[in-house]
Design a protein around this nucleic acid. Structure first.
Length: 671
DNA sequence: GAGCACTGC
């Protein structure tokens, strides 16, 4: 009960004693519900934001746009909507909408606020995320993902059911947030969070709220480290041997790096005296199956210290308790986009100052902490202030399609907070035109463009669904597109690579990866139908997880694909597209893939590499493809990723002649 | 011969 603890240390034990003696029957001890309620009320009162409740209500009432800079732990996300509700912002039946970049945040915060309000989740307080709507007619405080609000805007461009929109975590500058802000600027009715937005909104008022964060001491190295993996290892062991108890969080760039540091930590520990070996390494990254991710949350055994090896998943998405030390080598793997080649790639770059700050803050959640930056302070000064917003680093085809559907025709003139390059916009317009989504006048085409905008998919996949209804293979394409839309379906841990390969062979199809994915999906369906008649949903999930594990499939990805499948199946049915299967006619399906993915066709070169026809780039088949060894003459692919090489992934063999036949607008016959 | 992180009525 923090409000009581503030009286000072000397007398607190005494007064506590007296209180109990005076009131031998303490309500809090008798009624746990009362105690919980009391605790929540006291917690709310203790939050830094509580002292400015009235002011916030007034500011929001008096300003169309308000920037609220709430530091970590200020309570803004949970309290502000309640303040506004109490201040009467929902009186005319309107709703307060709060957007979050991530689903898990929308869900957990909504649950917390419902509890604080003492209402059932889904009634006055609710949340809405893709595949999950826990709201009702009486919902007045609605948490949601920013992407979902954008989808809502397609149906109601003025967002007329909301009295206030709070865009939380706007400083993260996700593509969705940026598009939403541009849209809200048109609607001119918003309350924003984060600094530096004031100028964009024409000098909007800003309110600062103090946070609650413990101090973190920052340490730099004297010199630049030539090998940051080695420097990381040395620092881990140094902390382990010399510092007080507390877990260590290390930020690395990817799976490979994490696995090698994990191995090296174990090796070096063996060289230490036995009493000093009580250090446990726990990896976490997105592609790790969730049961393995959970290990980082388990407390270390008594006497042990945990060292968590993480990607930037631990920067914002996941909060791990018990962290007292952070090691930050100063690098991150980031997406980048080359509009000339139309290629996205992953490259390792230095973090920004803001990112370094965010990382060090992870050491000060529960008490004072320490952060070791593995570079000199002079290097920190040279870092960019903040990370380049994603909208300047990605393919814009989807953003443009959405904006067009929202009635924004002049994309080059749209008032983005930070405008993507002209080249990048033009390249994506060109792609949309080639896919048939835009007319010669650059307007959304009817019906294709409108249908594509309605589907929650990459434009190229939306186009594939529309074409598939004409090729009589929509059932197969729905599965394909769902499987292509999720993270990697196959999971092959290094130590069981051979087993995983054998498992994958059961599904593999000589035509290529697309039909292989269809086989996996259908096998999971058959398994479920055979094994789970009459079982509960939880039992179903559990039995499917087991099947996935046996087959080296990432169950989280497969479940996600099944959700996407049922959603887009609903979408195409609503559009009236013809749902049919091509049965055993693989040729028909492969021709449809060629017609859909003609922009991503590639031809084999004498030395076994491929030349992508649209961009002229030399690429290689990714080793995870079923066609890695077969190397057919002509292929279509879905993903081009630059890591050590330019790799293409998700590939199907096609006949070269189909291109001119099925995409004559692009490939005219030259011979 | 190899996989940053998020997300979408």
């Amino acid at each position: 009960m923090p409000s009581m603890a503030q009286g000072g240390l000397r007398n607190s034990a005494d007064s506590h004693h007296k209180l109990r003696a005076k009131f031998p029957v303490d309500d809090r001890k008798v009624d746990p519900a009362f105690s919980r309620k009391q605790k929540i009320a006291e917690h709310r009162k203790s939050l830094p934001i509580a002292s400015v409740e009235k002011r916030l209500g007034d500011e929001v009432r008096n300003n169309d746009i308000l920037i609220i800079v709430g530091e970590t732990g200020s309570g803004k996300t949970t309290q502000l909507p309640q303040f506004l509700f109490n201040a009467g912002f929902c009186r005319d039946g309107k709703t307060i909408g709060i957007t979050q970049p991530r689903r898990v945040a929308a869900v957990t915060v909504a649950k917390r606020v419902a509890e604080e309000c003492g209402v059932e989740l889904g009634q006055r307080v609710g949340y809405s995320i893709r595949f999950e709507d826990v709201t009702s007619g009486s919902t007045r405080i609605k948490y949601m993902t920013d992407g979902l609000l954008l989808r809502e805007a397609l149906l109601d461009p003025y967002l007329s059911r909301y009295s206030v929109i709070i865009v939380d975590e706007a400083h993260e500058r996700t593509v969705h947030t940026d598009v939403l802000l541009g849209l809200l600027k048109n609607v001119q009715k918003a309350s924003l969070d984060a600094r530096g937005f004031s100028e964009y909104f024409g000098g909007a008022r800003a309110v600062h709220i103090q946070g609650r964060q413990f101090p973190v001491d920052i340490f730099y190295t004297h010199h630049a480290e030539p090998d940051y993996v080695d420097a990381t290892l040395i620092t881990i062991l140094q902390i382990h041997l010399e510092e007080r108890p507390g877990d260590i969080l290390v930020f690395l760039t990817g799976q490979e790096e994490i696995e090698s540091v994990e191995r090296l930590v174990k090796e070096r520990l063996q060289q230490l005296p036995e009493g000093s070996r009580k250090l446990l390494a726990a990896p976490i990254f997105s592609a790790l199956p969730s049961e393995k991710q959970m290990r980082v949350f388990a407390p270390a055994p008594a006497g042990f210290r945990k060292v968590i090896l993480a990607t930037n998943i631990a920067e914002t998405s996941v909060t791990i308790p018990g962290i007292r030390y952070v090691i930050d080598p100063g690098f991150v793997k980031a997406r980048s986009y080359d509009p000339v080649k139309g290629m996205e790639s992953l490259i390792i770059v230095p973090t920004s100052k803001a990112q370094a700050l965010q990382r060090s803050g992870r050491a000060g959640r529960e008490g004072p902490g320490k952060c070791f930056r593995l570079y000199p302070e002079s290097e920190f000064e040279k870092l960019d202030d903040s990370t380049k917003p994603e909208i300047k680093r990605c393919n814009l085809a989807n953003v443009i399609l959405q904006l067009k559907a929202l009635g924004v025709d002049d994309i080059l003139g749209f008032d983005f907070m930070e405008k993507p390059s002209r080249a990048s916009i033009v390249k994506s317009l060109e792609q949309l035109f080639l896919l048939g989504a835009l007319t010669d006048e650059c307007k959304l085409s009817d019906p294709v463009g409108h249908q594509m905008a309605q589907l929650p998919l990459d434009p190229i996949y939306s186009r594939a669904l529309i074409l598939a209804s004409q090729f009589n293979c929509l059932e197969e394409m729905l599965i394909t597109v769902a499987m292509l839309s999720v993270e990697s379906i196959f999971y092959a841990p290094r130590e069981k690579l051979e087993e995983a390969r054998t498992a994958m062979k059961c599904f593999s199809c000589p035509e290529g990866d697309h039909l292989t994915l269809v086989n996996v999906y259908r096998a999971s369906n058959e398994f479920l139908e055979k094994r789970t008649v009459g079982l509960s949903k939880e039992k179903n999930e559990k039995i499917l997880r087991k099947w996935c594990k046996e087959n080296f499939i990432n169950s989280r990805s497969l479940r996600h694909a099944r959700d996407v499948h049922s959603q887009i199946r609903g979408n195409v049915e609503q559009m009236g597209l013809r749902l049919a299967s091509c049965g055993d006619d693989m040729l028909q399906f492969c021709r449809c893939l060629a017609a859909s993915f003609f922009l991503n066709a590639a031809l084999k070169q004498p030395e076994g590499t491929y030349r992508a026809l649209a961009s002229g780039q030399v690429v290689q088949i990714h080793p995870s493809s079923v066609l890695f060894r077969a190397k057919p003459e002509c292929i279509v692919f879905n993903e081009l990723v630059q890591t050590n090489h330019k790799y293409i992934r998700n590939i199907t063999k096609i006949d070269y002649l189909w291109l001119a036949e099925l995409a004559p607008q692009y490939y005219c016959m030259q011979n």
